[in-house]
Design a protein around this nucleic acid. Structure first.
Lengths: 189, 189
DNA sequence: GTCTATAACACGATAGAC
DNA sequence: GTCTATCGTGTTATAGAC
């Protein structure tokens, strides 16, 4: 694990505060105080509060895009693809629990990058739906509403950031398996 | 459907704005403007911004408490209790989609009522867990981690507010059944 | 790289006229 | 019941000393 630069330290501290109170309720004074400096000093490392939010959200959103592309392209069953999606969420969330809170709850406060974020999210959900639809048409997945299935899975996966920190004892891989089991057995034929 | 008083109109408009941007990012001027009046005029009907948030959240939290009590006391199987919980969430969410956003995302901005809210939520989750545990011990529910099951179900149910408005065509009862099916078949023996 | 001081503006809320 | 005017404070961000 490489040493964090001051800028990275600011961003990861911001993510932690954003998780607790939301982007809008966290002030630059709050953030500076958490780092033991004055608010004005932050601006030697970052351009604006908005820039911090952008860094947090876009970095994660692009990881999901990459991961989904790789899963979508892979030559495995659609059920296996769903299991890979669960593992992708568990892995990304475990590596950036605080950032996931911003991605889920503060994306609407993005300014310049809002459209870009929405495009990434939309593409992600469409690929997710395609996998479910193909799974149903190949009888790997039980005949039912694909959107209800995605909604149910994605709701659980998006809430992982609230749950993973409480379960540091539980192994990450075990969690992914246990979740896959709960989510998929009920879809499976 | 009775006519809304001015106060109720303010609260329901606030809930709509809180859903879009979160409590902290909505100003009293935003709220007044959405109602076609000036910010100062709001204070003839409500005491403070905080009071609006309290009204929105506590009213819904108490409905959940009531509903869970009734389900918990009823003399039905534990699987039926879980189905009733799904129906409870679908019904409350359908009746107050905007308020559910505040309950989920802005509860930490409660001031005087924060402890009370947390107690209600904690009691709710404990009753939920008890039902799952009893279901497992009576072999109605598949042997697995009760917290993973509750987490998965509750994540989906808490996200309903994002999804119900998009699906006005879909009948509410059908949705409850379809969700129950997706969530429970995979838990069932 | 951090500080003090401050600009420029937005915030919740109140007073008092109509 | 809504308005205009305003108070007191908090907000992001910049300028310039050290």
């Amino acid at each position: 694990m490489r040493q964090e630069t001051r800028k990275e330290e600011i961003i990861s501290t911001a993510a932690k505060l954003f998780k607790e109170k939301g982007y809008s309720a966290v002030t630059m004074r709050d953030l500076a105080s958490a780092l033991g400096i004055k608010a004005a000093s932050l601006y030697n490392h970052i351009n604006s509060k908005q820039d911090i939010l952008k860094s947090i959200i876009i970095a994660i959103a692009e990881k999901f895009t990459e991961g989904m592309q790789s899963i979508s392209d892979s030559d495995i069953s659609n059920i296996s693809k769903l299991e890979s999606i669960v593992a992708l969420h568990v892995q990304i969330t475990a590596n950036n629990t605080n950032g996931m809170a911003s991605l889920n709850n503060d994306w609407m406060h993005l300014e310049d990058q809002l459209e870009y974020y929405l495009k990434l999210r939309n593409d992600y959900e469409n690929k997710f739906l395609d996998i479910i639809r193909e799974g149903i048409s190949k009888s790997e997945i039980r005949q039912s509403n694909p959107e209800v299935i995605m909604f149910s899975m994605l709701s659980t996966l998006r809430s992982l950031y609230l749950w993973i920190p409480k379960k540091e004892d539980l192994n990450i891989n075990e969690l992914a398996l246990s979740l896959s089991d709960t989510l998929i057995n009920g879809i499976n034929t």
